[in-house]
């Protein structure tokens, strides 16, 4: 009987300890997944920023009457690049989780959403220029832009899914205890306000 009590005294804390390790590892895995998701978004945003100068250069010859739109696209891109640089800087700070904090993220999401709005406007404009759409070079560029836009959307979806899973675990008991003890931060969702886009529908010319 005494043996049993001794064993219980040894084994119970051990069991809790092992359980704690399992919980900790799960949180780390989830955080890792969210970080991967963020890296994927970052890559795709970079890709978008790299594509735009090339695109503007190519369509400029056709869209001579759309100078303002093209300039707006360039401006939106510059804003987005600046926001991305700020986000990079935020992740380099000490004790960062590798993902920008909420405010930086919101700022970047805003800038990217504005850029996305301008691009969809450019798409709509291009519809009105059949000879532009027919050029093989432009077709390839638009295909590249479409896939980048889709990748951003999918990467955002994957990132938000993984962040939600992580945050849910982080706030639930008993993971909560581990998260508190080891300072697992809450991660921000990528929430672009698409409303500005909806309120100003892109002008489509029927000529």
């Amino acid at each position: 009987m005494e043996h049993l009590t001794t064993w219980l005294l040894i084994l119970t804390p051990l069991a809790f300890f092992v359980w704690g390790i399992v919980l900790y590892n799960r949180l780390v895995t989830l955080r890792q997944r969210a970080q991967n998701g963020w890296a994927q978004i970052d890559v795709q945003l970079q890709r978008r920023h790299d594509l735009i100068p090339n695109l503007v250069e190519t369509v400029k010859a056709y869209l001579t009457h759309e100078r303002e739109t093209l300039e707006a696209v360039i401006r939106a891109r510059q804003n987005a690049v600046a926001a991305q640089t700020a986000a990079h800087a935020a992740t380099q700070r000490p004790r960062s989780s590798g993902i920008p904090d909420r405010d930086t993220m919101a700022h970047l999401a805003e800038a990217e959403s504005a850029l996305g709005g301008m691009l969809s406007r450019l798409f709509a404009l291009a519809e009105a220029y059949p000879d532009l759409k027919a050029t093989a070079n432009v077709q390839a560029l638009f295909e590249a832009l479409t896939t980048t836009e889709n990748r951003i959307a999918f990467a955002r979806q994957a990132y938000n899914d993984s962040v939600t899973a992580y945050n849910t675990h982080r706030e639930q008991f008993p993971d909560l205890l581990i998260a508190q003890a080891f300072a697992f931060p809450e991660l921000p969702l990528w929430e672009a306000s698409d409303r500005s886009q909806l309120e100003t529908p892109p002008p489509v010319r029927l000529s």
Partner: peptide
């Protein structure tokens, strides 16, 4: 070719979505 590029792009997109 446009169709081949599109196919490649679409698959890469979905692979991102599926992780």
């Amino acid at each position: 070719s446009l169709t081949a590029t599109r196919y490649r792009h679409v698959t890469e997109e979905i692979a991102i979505a599926a992780g």
